[in-house]
């Protein structure tokens, strides 16, 4: 299958420091790739660089053939990339409905019968429909996460970047988020999932990549990664 996202030699960081030290990374269309690694490995920096929220020092980021390294976030978004950021970052002063409405974007190219609409989001996440007039800062953590995912889906992205969707959520809520993401996976989304929760990552991902000190040090199928406990331990410090 062709790669939707192809990253080559990506270097970047903040204020002159180097966090990403030559990242090579691909995401085949229709695949969910988990990006694992210890704290400070550069996962969030990487996701921000792909989204255009951080300007890389060097390297190439191609999405469906278009070179987007260094392009501002709104251009990257219009090229079909959406992010569910760490910490969710729903707009606190906006209602659920307003949060969704300002994100709505028709899919690029020809008309898609399965395009995401607010109605479909509310069907998929009835809790959001119930809370549609509530402000972002009146939602629970789980509801905010649902909203952040709904907001990203409404952009009808070709590539979805999920940055720690389980972070700070109670285990039962993580289950709900996992079920939602499984549903999306069933629809064939292409996504990068940054995740500390290995159970969640293994449950959702087709493939696993491990980042260490700003480089990808392992890449393989999820099944293969789970078989080799020694390697998982060495790379992630967990058994």
């Amino acid at each position: 299958m062709t790669d939707l996202l192809t990253v080559r030699g990506l270097r970047g960081g903040y204020a002159g420091t180097t966090v990403l030290d030559g990242v090579d990374f691909t995401v085949p269309a229709g695949t969910l790739v988990a990006l694992l690694g210890r704290n400070g490995a550069g996962k969030t920096t990487f996701v921000h660089a792909v989204m255009g929220m951080l300007k890389p020092y060097a390297g190439s980021i191609r999405i469906g053939g278009d070179e987007l390294a260094g392009a501002p976030a709104h251009i990257v978004a219009r090229n079909g990339v959406a992010i569910v950021p760490q910490g969710r970052r729903v707009f606190a002063p906006l209602t659920v409905e307003e949060n969704l409405r300002i994100a709505a974007r028709r899919p690029a190219g020809a008309q898609a019968p399965n395009a995401w609409t607010a109605t479909r989001i509310y069907e998929l996440m009835p809790r959001l429909a119930e809370r549609r007039t509530h402000r972002g800062d009146q939602l629970s953590g789980g509801e905010q996460q649902m909203l952040a995912i709904g907001r990203a889906l409404l952009q009808n992205p070709r590539l979805l970047l999920l940055d720690e969707p389980s972070d700070g959520l109670a285990p039962t809520v993580v289950d709900q988020v996992a079920e939602l993401l499984e549903t999306l996976r069933g629809e064939g989304i292409t996504a990068v999932l940054v995740e500390q929760d290995l159970h969640l990552a293994f449950r959702l991902a087709d493939e696993v990549a491990v980042m260490q000190k700003g480089r990808i040090v392992h890449r393989g199928t999820t099944a293969d990664f789970r078989r080799d406990r020694g390697r998982a331990h060495t790379l992630l410090g967990v058994g």
Partner: peptide, 21 residues
């Protein structure tokens, strides 16, 4: 709708950019 965008930009400008605005 424009007002939503303005309020969202006050709250979290990089995130608004990431929505294609």
């Amino acid at each position: 709708q424009l007002g939503s965008v303005i309020r969202a930009t006050v709250a979290d400008r990089p995130m608004v950019s990431a929505l294609g605005i």
